Amino acid sequence: MHNQKKTITFIINPISGTKSKEALPSLVSQHIDSNLYDCEIIKTQYAGHAAEIARQCAADHKDICVAVGGDGTVNEVARSLAHSDTALGIIPCGSGNGLARHLCLPMDMKQALDIINIGKTDHFDYGVINDQPFFCTCGMGFDAYVSLKFAESGKRGLATYVENVLKEGLTYKPDTYIITDETGEHQYKAFLVACANASQYGNNAYIAPEASMQDGLLDVIIMEPFNIIEAAKVGFDLFAKTLKNNNHIQTFQACSIHISRNEPGAVHFDGDPTKMGKEIDVRIEPLGLKAIINPHHTQDEAKAGKVMNNISKTIDKILVG
């Protein structure tokens, strides 16, 4: 008696992300082993449809549910699969692709399919901010603004992005935050507060370079106000994975924190901006998400070097101009 085939559902959001997805159906038939898998491809038809399809995949005990789109689609699918035995797969088509990059998944559609075909999975933590699940980062203050800019940055290129964001950031007013964790209450005057489950916002900007998605802990990053000269260094550190050494940054880890701020206002989770009140709770759900992983786990160092070179040039430009 032969083994039953595994099932994969591809959820395509035709309007999300930056890459065309028209080639996907033919790529699926070329790269996914039809002896091992039965595949279906469903296109979303309205906002929230990806979440509904993914919930149904979990209810039907599908083996793998693949989000094909930008960070918003990935978040929608992932939150619907949390605490189920259906694994999240990602074909990254956005500009930031934070979760895919943290998991070292290929940005190339064909290579991403090859990883799904291997079918190796693992379990990962996810975060919750006031009952809203997130998988990479959430934050407030300038962070909500930064992540929003990041979501839009793909079309404009990284160098322009860094320059614009840092210059605009200098007019941003710091706020006072009271953060309570297991060790007690601490007050900070901060430019931004970020809580990271994964290491980056996307586009290889590492807000929490040492964050692990399997340690049951949030990495909390407090960025204190800085001037235009220091802004360039902050930008550099963000891409060089050296933010922790910056003297405007304080970091600590916690399973959960409570944040009090003076006014209600913007927050973001995985780059999705929204408004929340003065009191905010953030916590980790340990190993609540099953996801496809890259067993080869190689990162493109040459590309990272090229990005760093561009950032250095941009910083010189800011300092000179």
Rank of each mutant, 00 (worst) to 15 (best):
T7F: 09
I8F: 00
F10Y: 10
I12P: 08
G17H: 02
A23K: 14
I32M: 03
D33Y: 05
N35T: 12
N35Q: 14
N35F: 04
L36C: 12
D38N: 14
E40S: 15
I42R: 11
Y46M: 07
I53F: 07
Q56K: 13
C57H: 03
H61E: 15
K62P: 02
I64E: 06
G69P: 02
G70A: 03
V77K: 06
V77N: 07
R79C: 04
H83D: 15
S84W: 08
T86D: 10
T86Q: 06
A87I: 10
G89H: 03
I90Q: 02
P92Q: 03
S95D: 06
S95Q: 06
N97T: 12
A100T: 02
R101M: 11
H102M: 07
C104P: 00
D108A: 09
K110Q: 14
Q111A: 13
A112T: 01
I116F: 04
N117H: 07
K120W: 02
H123D: 09
Y126W: 02
P133E: 01
C136D: 09
C136S: 14
C138R: 03
G139C: 06
M140V: 06
D143T: 00
Y145Q: 08
Y145A: 00
A151P: 00
G154T: 06
G154L: 02
R156L: 12
R156Y: 15
G157I: 07
L158D: 10
L158S: 12
A159T: 14
T160R: 15
E163F: 10
V165H: 04
L170G: 12
T171Y: 10
K173W: 00
P174H: 12
Y177Q: 08
I178L: 13
T180M: 09
D181L: 06
D181R: 11
Q187E: 15
L192K: 03
L192P: 05
A196R: 02
A196E: 01
N197R: 00
Q200I: 04
Q200Y: 00
Q200M: 11
G202P: 11
N204K: 12
N204M: 12
Y206W: 12
A211F: 05
S212M: 08
S212N: 08
S212I: 01
G216Q: 01
V220W: 03
I229D: 14
E230T: 08
A232W: 01
G235L: 13
F236P: 01
D237Q: 12
F239P: 06
A240L: 01
K241Q: 14
K244Q: 09
K244M: 06
N245D: 15
T251D: 01
H258L: 13
H258M: 11
N262P: 05
G265M: 08
H268W: 07
H268A: 11
H268C: 05
D272W: 00
G277N: 14
I280R: 00
I284L: 14
P286I: 07
K290F: 09
N294H: 07
P295N: 11
T298H: 08
T298W: 00
A302T: 09
K306T: 14
N310F: 13
S312V: 05
S312N: 10
T314G: 06
D316W: 11
K317A: 09
V320K: 15
